[in-house]
Design a protein around this nucleic acid. Structure first.
Lengths: 206, 206
DNA sequence: CCCAAATTTAATAGCTCTATTAATTTCATG
DNA sequence: CATGAAATTAATAGAGCTATTAAATTTGGG
């Protein structure tokens, strides 16, 4: 059960904690269990991170950064709008592939812990608003030119989010209920990315 | 804080428990808190339901039935396929409107508690398979006639689920981040139903 | 009005968890 | 190899939770 490794104990704690937090969320993960899985004394977890809350936050923060920056840097204004949208879906989807448990962790923590939502909201407010504004402008431009039907930017983002997040969130339920192997599911997921792009594109036709 | 009411205490316990379970899930809700909100002794919760687990299961079971039967009985084979799909999305969406916290509860419990997933899977296996089969058959029929592009039944269901669930699941996060009032959100939700139907229909075009 | 059943409460055992403190061990370095 | 800092452990306080038990209270039918 416990991890033999040449990494520093501190690093091991972070990794085990990350794994457990991802699987079960903050509340259902105990520092006792983390210590047991690492193979160290429970007090050691508190020695390095003082509180379970701080340990969690450091991990959560890092994940939030990862996701945010990945989404932010993906926009290339030299491309035509449709191409940028396509890339948006693809890149967002790929981040999910790399971090399949992230959506559930985010949902779980943000929905059950108001403090956490508050924190992330503040971080979100600091984002360059220009980004959203530019997206809205470019969209309006396309609409005016009759290339896209009249639709709000929020609506588009909600569609992307819906299509991209859900497969990852319901994955364990889906696999269990339809008796789908990991291999098959991975195939389905890859098809799904293309499917989502197609659905979004068609949804925007005038 | 405590509830004054002419209902039986047992009924009050169920209602308060349901509310709390919906908001915070099984793990984060304590029988102590339920009793406090009802305004009774904590032992009383156990007097009526013996364990917190049994109390939860009775509520969860009822909700699962509600959702399942609502979905099952919505199919009218006399209608054309497209019309039935439209109704499927609408009805499923309406159930969500009536029980906006249900998606999160289901996700949360099924994803964090393997026993619960096992249980629901068994219930699901007992469903008349014919239903899924008929859906698949009818779909294939449409595809053969060239009225719908080649797409699997699972893919369609995943699309419906994605589009319909997500707005309700992320509601609190969305409202906080975009500073949206309850009233405005309800408007958005109603528009979203139509939007989802449109997206699905377009996604199926040959 | 009485009493038995149903309801409700008080008290508490036993568990797990977080966090802290003090003691012990490890280890690099002068 | 001595020493002090860093790492680790043992022990435990203190809190909250579930579940049970026995006692107290309420209530409805005869």
């Amino acid at each position: 059960m416990d991890v033999k490794s040449d990494q520093s104990t501190e690093q091991q704690i972070i990794e085990v904690a990350e794994k457990l937090f991802m699987e079960k969320g903050f509340a259902l993960t105990s520092t006792t269990e983390i210590a047991r899985k690492v193979g160290c004394n429970q007090a050691l977890v508190h020695y390095y991170f003082r509180t379970k809350e701080k340990l969690f936050e450091s991990i959560f923060e890092r994940k939030a950064q990862l996701m945010l920056s990945a989404i932010l840097k993906m926009d290339d204004p030299t491309q035509p709008f449709e191409e940028r949208l396509r890339k948006l879906v693809e890149n967002h989807f790929d981040i999910m592939v790399e971090n399949p448990q992230l959506p559930f962790l985010f949902l779980n923590e943000l929905l059950t812990n108001p403090k956490r939502l508050e924190l992330l909201t503040q971080k979100f407010q600091m984002l360059p608003l220009t980004l959203m504004e530019r997206f809205a402008n470019d969209l309006q431009n396309e609409i005016d030119k009759g290339r896209i039907r009249n639709v709000t930017p929020i609506s588009i983002l909600l569609t992307v989010l819906s299509l991209n997040l859900t497969p990852f969130i319901i994955r364990p339920i889906f696999q269990k209920m339809t008796n789908t192997s990991d291999e098959l599911f991975n195939v389905i997921i890859q098809q799904r990315k293309q499917e989502n792009i197609l659905i979004l594109m068609r949804s925007l036709m005038p």
